[in-house]
């Protein structure tokens, strides 16, 4: 397996500008300079990856590999398949780093959406059996977190989403998870659940509306998604 082609370099100005912004954010503690615990932002790392900075690749992969592998594994329950998908997902992120558009959402959402879509493709190609949607909805407690403070915050965010999903009826929950996590169309859900297409569409829509409403009322904010 040889080394893959690296993305073309285009002006290092963006990478330097991103580092400059990071340097400007370095804070003073106890009379010493301390690089911010969170390190460069995701956007700065993507900018670095886009110009071929190896350091940025290493930091980004180590920041995201557990989340990417975790999502793939929660969808497939297959460690080998999940590993393959995780590897392909991160390579795709690396390749497409130059074209990431922050106006369309966060880096985290972009990375996880790539992972989700590649997992769906892999499941279909191999005709593999995905994780039962009920198990996917219940899997979020298994998180491995490096930073205890982040673990608490992330567990709280996970708990909110799990709780919100539990407030849905079983039929709505299955429809929303099958659509959102497994990419099943309304038609595929109607076939799988043996229900009319209109019923499938209604379950999807009302389930998602209910999920959104519950999350909003529980105080979940966009920040806890990162």
């Amino acid at each position: 397996m040889g080394a893959e082609c690296r993305p073309e370099r285009f002006g290092t100005a963006e990478w330097r500008a991103a580092i400059f912004r990071h340097v400007s954010d370095v804070s003073l503690r106890m009379g010493q300079i301390h690089v911010a615990d969170s390190g460069p932002s995701d956007e700065a790392l993507l900018a670095g990856m886009a110009v071929g900075e190896q350091a940025a690749v290493v930091v980004f992969v180590r920041r995201y590999q557990s989340r990417v592998y975790g999502l793939a594994y929660s969808m497939t329950s297959d460690r080998i398949l999940a590993e393959e998908v995780a590897e392909e997902s991160l390579i795709r992120v690396w390749r497409h780093a130059p074209v990431f558009d922050p106006r369309r959402g966060s880096v985290a959402s972009w990375v996880l959406t790539i992972t989700r879509n590649l997992t769906i493709d892999a499941l279909r190609t191999r005709r593999a059996v995905p994780t039962d949607p009920e198990n996917f909805a219940a899997s979020a407690h298994m998180s491995l977190e490096q930073n205890p403070e982040d673990a608490v915050q992330r567990d709280d965010a996970h708990a909110m989403v799990r709780t919100a999903l539990r407030t849905l009826s079983p039929e709505q929950r299955r429809a929303v998870v099958l659509a959102g996590a497994y990419g099943r169309s309304a038609f595929e859900i109607s076939e799988a659940e043996n229900i009319p297409l209109g019923t499938a569409k209604t379950r999807i829509r009302t389930g998602l509306l209910h999920l959104r409403s519950t999350l909003e009322h529980s105080g979940k904010t966009r920040k806890t998604d990162e």
Binding site: M1, A3, V57, W94, T113, M142, G180
Partner: peptide
């Protein structure tokens, strides 16, 4: 609605990939 959808993906647990994952990935990327 997209925000609520993203929440489901972000809910997935963090799981450490198997040993050697980084090595293989970095090797492919160069």
């Amino acid at each position: 609605l997209s925000w609520a959808t993203d929440a489901m993906l972000h809910m997935a647990p963090q799981v450490e990939p198997p040993l050697g994952f980084e090595v293989r990935l970095f090797s492919r990327i160069g």
